[in-house]
Design a protein around this nucleic acid. Structure first.
Lengths: 313, 313
DNA sequence: ACATCGGCGTAACATATGTAACATAGAGAC
DNA sequence: GTCTCTATGTTACATATGTTACGCCGATGT
């Protein structure tokens, strides 16, 4: 086709000279329609192409692919830090920027949060807002043993930075036994809380792994739990204290019958479910949650994103 | 600025994913306005850039620069052929495509043409049209001595390919003497013809050089003319049989007082004045015509274009 | 010679884009 | 504290863009 030359000329005038399609048509004695076609053809045939000159471009690509692959509404991929100790800070910054915009634009009436190092960093990095009518709810009970990062502290921090109402979940994460769990859960106050909890418009959690790096493992579990048996049952990590297998299903283990938090179906009822976690030890549980479609939004690091795209689906 | 990341993300969604700015704003929780700015900034800051993957791109650039530098309305730059013998064919093809579009779109009522190898090739390559009301006029007299390419043949070929009316210029190019010139020019028929000639809406000429390669030099000049004296007078080539110096002014030489064609001022009165010439031996005269602003449109080859841009202005 | 078909121009339209005018809120200066 | 100042959101509008429907014309095949 001779139009190669026309495509190049039209594209040059359009992209470099900044003329309008109508002006180009005038100058080249062609109709605007024709120019429009030529420009589209030039792009399609690769005569002109848009190239990205930023390392961030790859992250943007990963985000788009994550959205497509796992049906996400939102995805944020931050650069994987060379020093993995920075991971929480990186995740925090990325998640904070995302949440700031999300909250600013969508003004959810209520937000449910989990806990962990990532959430701690996130709330530190948030710009915040002034939303006195907004409710921040913990979606999990509190730690009974100490940690420098406590669930109560997290939810309070969120409420403070957003100047919003703060709703603690006045219960332990795990009941001492299955019977105690059923008893606690039957309390009207918890019934309502769990119903309300899963009524939030937005949830923001991280997932936990099953290694000693996990705060949940170190401080959240009842003292007598044998991690080995948890792993043997197929657990690859937890979401809201509930331990999941590689397919994202709760494993058959007493802990899952003692956990006091919205069950998976209730959780799925939350319209926007953001999960923010990064780093290699989170790979298995991230993959599980993605496969099970538990999140509508993901904040993670580039390496994890690549893993998800390579393995998952 | 932290917006680097936002720019990349927005640009990716726009250019690669093909989302609309409004959709991106929705997805990133930003206003459409902001996205618009981000995209513009990304382009400006070079975060994304449009690159051309065609050797023709450089020609398009040369065209744009020629237009700017010399105030042209139209410029066509064809690739310089490796074999310079192909130059006329290349020029012809480029000029033919240009003229086809020009005539098709603008329907000039009358076109004035010169002569030469380039015009010969041009008319051969034209698709043509069917414009019975269009008048093709020769802007120069005819050759008195033979050439395989004759002015009369050129104008007739144009008229034929356009199915238009054909108006020959029934005179020699040069009168035998200055007195004869004045006498001829005073004839009512020529007076009218010259007036009409410069009344054409479009002129299509090539320029001539002052070497033996020029058909004008070989066949057009009266026998006794000494090329050396022409050159000594400063001539670098001719336009419509009028020899010009490096600044585009007619040289002081008897030939210029014998030539029978519209004078420079009359020529300038033509709204669209296309000059088509390429190859190194045309450089000097091309530069002269460009400097003097004699053309509104130029068809040339890449090498010549580069020369004009490097030297001229 | 005639019918058919694809390419292109024309016109009209719905959408998308760029921009201006104004409002608002947060950051920094005094 | 109050101020301005800048950056951004809001709204509205003028342009530009992409797309559709339709008709002309020349090319092609029978």
């Amino acid at each position: 086709m001779d139009s190669q030359e026309l495509m190049v000329r039209a594209s040059w005038l359009y992209h470099v000279e900044g003329l309008t399609q109508a002006q180009i048509g005038e100058r080249m004695n062609l109709t605007r329609r024709r120019i429009n076609e030529l420009l589209a053809a030039a792009l399609e045939k690769g005569v002109v192409r848009v190239s990205f000159n930023s390392p961030l471009a790859e992250n943007a690509e990963l985000e788009a692919r994550l959205c497509r692959r796992f049906g996400l509404k939102d995805a944020v991929v931050a650069p994987t830090p060379a020093d993995l100790d920075q991971m929480h800070a990186v995740m925090g910054r990325a998640a904070a920027a995302f949440l700031d915009r999300f909250i600013q634009a969508r003004k959810p009436r209520s937000i449910g949060v989990g806990w962990g190092a990532t959430l701690h960093e996130t709330v530190l990095q948030m710009t915040g807002a002034n939303e006195p009518e907004m409710r921040i709810r913990s979606l999990m009970g509190g730690l009974t043993r100490g940690s420098e990062i406590n669930t109560f502290e997290i939810v309070r921090s969120f409420a403070k930075v957003l100047n919003a109402k703060c709703h603690y979940f006045a219960a332990p994460i795990y009941a001492g036994s299955e019977e105690a769990h059923d008893l606690i859960m039957s309390q009207p106050v918890f019934q309502e809380f769990l119903r309300e909890g899963s009524n939030v418009e937005l949830s923001f959690l991280s997932v936990g792994d099953v290694t000693g790096r996990s705060l949940q493992i170190r401080y959240g579990l009842p003292p007598q739990v044998d991690i080995g048996r948890l792993v043997a049952a197929g657990a690859v990590g937890d979401l809201l204290g509930r331990y999941l297998d590689a397919s994202g299903q709760p494993v058959d283990h007493p802990l899952n019958r003692q956990v006091i938090s919205p069950d998976i179906e209730a959780y799925r009822g939350i319209p926007d479910r953001i999960i923010a976690s990064g780093g290699p030890h989170k790979h298995a549980i991230l993959l599980a949650t993605m496969r099970a479609g538990l999140a509508t939004g993901l904040v993670t690091d580039a390496e994890s994103a690549r893993m998800l795209l390579k393995v998952g689906g």
